[in-house]
Design a protein around this nucleic acid. Structure first.
Length: 439
RNA sequence: GGGGGGAUUCCAGAGCGGCCAAAUGGGGCAGACUGUAAAUCUGUUGGUUUAUACCUUCGGAGGUUCGAAUCCUCCUCCCCCCA
């Protein structure tokens, strides 16, 4: 991790498709020797989600290239809300939550970055709340504000869009608080420049304006030279938003997104996106990826790219063991799993296979007495919201219980349906599983 | 402060006294085809349902009417124009 790779940092992220915009001179500065760079991370939750991963991977490659990566938790800026996004005004996080989130995020970053003390270019995690909170309003506008003109600030796209309406919507205006965001972020950069000799800020392409306000501030206040580098926003081939599913964000925290669900997210990547994601989210070399792409093109049904992508990330974020469990679960759930196969699973394996699947508790007595399917699936276990929905599904041949199609709305479910005297597997369509647990 | 326009089922957006549970598009779900992909095609998308039946829905509260998402009154919220 110490050595400089044959490729420079910028060359590396360029072929990976992670470079959108870069300030002239950045490359030269990086070649002079070890440098430090930072990205900002919003501490709005106590876990990262995969939307954060591009920035994290930027840091990772930065460190692999021998430089020092810094993750800045936006405790202060997170309270303000960046007008670049469509985010509304944010709520203030209390200090306790902030610290809790910071710690949780750090634990996840450890999987990507080397924080160990012995490492010369060890990664750092900082929280801008630590320096911003001590800054009084008056001091800030006197010492920082006077160096940047309002003219400069309103020329930024993020601000202009809100003031004049831009292409899409009418101007919605922005509060003074939001307006000041770029200045606060710029000060972060200044602070890091002074305290950590950090000369580069990286981020998504929507951050370009904010970052350059930082370099400008550094130039004016310290006559220093600082740099900016952004990566493109990740898109999906079908135009959808990356990292979101119907069920919400894909988190790194196994409590929020099960390892199985995490694995499934990557496995379900479309062909067009898979190569792109492999470049961005893994550290596989160019030749390795080219080889995979070649094999994939020859036999696309094997979905080599998706499998590799899912493997790399599940192992990295969770563990080898969780990865194997997920593969095993997927095979049973999506392979040619039969009723008998399902019944032959022992309890341990069963639990592993279905660990990420939503479960519903139903009283065992009721099941022994026997319950009508409709009642069971709507009232006892809230898997469906109405009888009509189930009838419709049955009509479409989309409902399975214990991997057997069910078409009879009069069916009585009793203890004979219990697998290991305890479970019933309910499947909607091809991919949506639920488990009913008798207790 | 003055004038005008609007609020419809997940979203966008028709409907403007009965044929409206409400066009159309998007999204969702399911089926076929497949590779747990994409594209395509089909079905479905308030509830109870055997249902051409009933119940609950068209910003809120009242009213007119045999009958209202549709007309009237008041209220709330949003947008535009003028000052």
């Amino acid at each position: 991790m110490q050595k400089f790779f044959s490729m420079s940092f910028t060359e590396e992220i360029k072929w990976r498709g992670m470079l959108h915009d870069i300030m002239p001179g950045t490359d030269e500065m990086l070649k002079e020797g070890r440098a430090a760079a930072y990205v900002g991370i919003d501490p709005t939750a106590d876990s990262l989600h995969i939307g954060h991963l591009v920035s994290v991977m930027l840091l990772k490659h930065f460190q692999l290239a021998g430089h020092q990566p810094i993750a800045v938790i936006g405790g202060a800026t997170g309270m303000i809300g960046d007008p670049s996004g469509k985010s509304q005004e944010r709520n203030l996080l209390d200090i306790q939550t902030l610290r809790h989130n910071q710690e949780a995020i750090k634990k996840q970053l450890v999987k990507f970055l080397d924080f160990s003390e012995q490492t010369e270019n060890k990664a750092l995690i900082l929280n801008n709340y630590d320096w911003m909170s001590k800054f009084s309003f008056l001091d800030f506008i006197r010492d920082v504000g006077k160096h940047i003109s309002v003219n400069y600030m309103i020329a930024k796209d993020s601000v202009k869009k809100r003031m004049s309406g831009g292409a899409e919507k009418d101007a919605e205006g922005l509060s003074f608080t939001e307006f000041s965001y770029q200045l606060v972020q710029a000060y972060d950069f200044l602070h890091l420049y002074k305290e950590y000799n950090c000369k580069l800020q990286m981020g998504g392409s929507d951050q370009w304006g904010n970052i350059t306000t930082g370099t400008e501030l550094i130039r004016r206040m310290l006559q220093g030279k600082a740099f900016a580098l952004t990566s493109p926003l990740i898109t999906k081939a079908d135009g959808g938003k990356f990292g979101k599913t119907e069920k919400g964000n894909i988190w790194l925290d196994p409590e929020k997104t099960s390892p199985y669900g995490f694995y499934q997210f990557w496995i379900n990547t479309s062909d067009e996106d898979a190569e792109k994601y492999l470049k961005i989210f893994t550290v596989l070399s160019k030749s390795e990826i080219e080889l995979l792409v070649k094999s994939h093109t020859e036999a696309p049904h094997n979905r080599l790219l998706q499998k590799k992508l899912a493997e790399e990330l599940t192992v990295l974020v969770h563990s080898k063991e969780e990865f194997f469990n997920s593969v095993a679960a997927s095979e049973i759930l999506f392979g040619k799993g039969t009723k008998n196969q399902l019944r032959s699973l022992n309890e341990k394996t069963f639990n592993d296979v279905f660990s990420g699947v939503p479960t519903f508790l139903v009283s065992k007595e009721a099941l022994i007495r026997g319950i009508n399917v409709l009642t069971l699936l709507t009232s006892e276990a809230l898997i469906f919201s109405s009888n009509g929905e189930i009838r419709r599904l049955m009509k479409d041949n989309g409902l399975s219980i214990n991997l057997e199609k069910v078409n009879d709305s009069e069916l009585i479910i009793n203890e004979e349906f219990l697998i290991n005297k305890k479970y019933i597997v309910v499947k909607q369509g091809k991919k949506n599983y639920s488990i009913i647990v008798a207790s």
